[in-house]
C-alpha cells in the first residue's frame, strides 16, 4: 500500500498541497483528478522522491522510499525519459541493465501490443508512440505499483484507445495503479477510486461506479460541481 499522510508542499509563497492524505492499494486503480495546477503531478513526483515536500509522510508498504524501492514502484511521467538518440531496443536494454524487475517477456508482449519497432529512434517517433515507449518502459517492470502522469495527453484517439486497453489487461492486474488524467471519460469505468483535489486538499474521495449508481453522476459531473461552484 502506498500511504500518503498529511503532505504539504509550496512553490515560493503558493501553497500547492495543504495536508493531503490518501492510500493506493494493490489491485486498485486510483485516479487523481483536478484542474491544472492543483498538484496532481507534484504528488506523483513526491511519491517518487523527485521533489521535496515541506512536511508529511509517504511510505510504500510501510517503508520510506529509497533507491532500492524503485524495483517496487514505477513512474511513467508525461515526458520522454529515454535518450532521444536511443532506439526502442536500446531503451529497453538500458532498463534491463539496472532493474532486477525488468521482464523481457512482458516487454516483448508490450512491443507487439503497441506495434512498436525496436529499431526506431525515439526522436523519430510521434508523440503517441513516445507515450507508448514510456508505458513500455514502466509496464515491463515487475513492480507492485505504477504511477502514470497524464498518459493520454496530446495523443490521438486511436492511440488513446490502445492505451485504455492496457488498464483492463494483465499488464496492470494485481498492481496498485495511481493515475492522473484530464481524459477521465476514457477510463472512468475502470477506476476503483477517484481522488478529487481542490485548493491543495482532497475535496472528495469516491468510487466512480458507486457514485454513478447512487447519485447518477459521472466524475466530470462531480468536478463541475466543485469547480463551477
Amino acid at each position: 500500500m502506498i500511504e500518503i499522510t498529511d503532505i504539504h508542499k509550496q512553490f515560493g509563497r503558493k501553497k500547492v498541497l495543504n495536508g493531503v492524505s490518501f492510500t493506493v492499494n494493490k489491485g486498485e486503480i486510483s485516479c487523481l483528478v483536478g484542474v491544472n495546477g492543483v498538484g496532481k503531478t507534484t504528488i506523483l513526483n513526491a511519491i517518487m522522491n523527485l521533489t521535496p515536500l515541506k512536511s508529511g509522510k509517504i511510505s510504500i508498504d510501510g517503508e520510506k522510499l529509497t533507491s532500492s524501492l524503485y524495483n517496487k514502484i514505477a513512474f511513467i511521467p508525461d515526458a520522454a525519459i529515454s535518450l532521444p538518440h536511443y532506439n526502442v531496443q536500446e531503451s529497453m536494454d538500458f532498463m534491463a541493465d539496472y532493474y532486477d524487475t525488468w521482464n523481457a517477456r512482458r516487454a516483448k508482449d508490450i512491443v507487439t501490443f503497441f506495434r512498436l519497432n525496436p529499431s526506431d529512434k525515439l526522436h523519430d517517433l510521434s508523440k503517441g508512440n513516445q507515450a507508448k515507449v514510456n508505458l513500455l518502459l514502466g509496464l515491463a517492470l515487475d513492480v507492485d505499483y505504477i504511477l502514470m502522469d497524464e498518459p493520454f495527453s496530446g495523443i490521438d484517439v486511436f492511440t488513446r484507445e490502445q492505451i485504455t486497453e492496457v488498464f483492463s489487461s494483465y499488464l496492470v492486474e494485481d498492481r496498485g495503479v495511481l493515475i492522473t488524467t484530464h481524459e477521465i471519460n476514457d477510463i472512468e469505468h475502470l477506476l476503483d477510486k477517484v481522488i478529487l483535489l481542490d485548493e491543495g486538499k482532497i475535496y472528495k474521495e469516491f468510487n466512480a461506479e458507486v457514485m454513478r449508481e447512487t447519485e447518477g453522476k459521472s466524475v466530470i459531473d462531480v468536478m463541475r460541481e466543485v469547480y463551477n461552484g
Partner: peptide, 16 residues
C-alpha cells in the same frame, strides 16, 4: 530541452 532524462536517472534502483 525536450528530454527530462533526469527522471530516469533519479529513478534508477541504485544509490543516487
Amino acid at each position: 530541452g525536450k528530454n527530462t532524462f533526469a527522471y530516469r536517472l533519479l529513478m534508477l534502483p541504485i544509490p543516487r
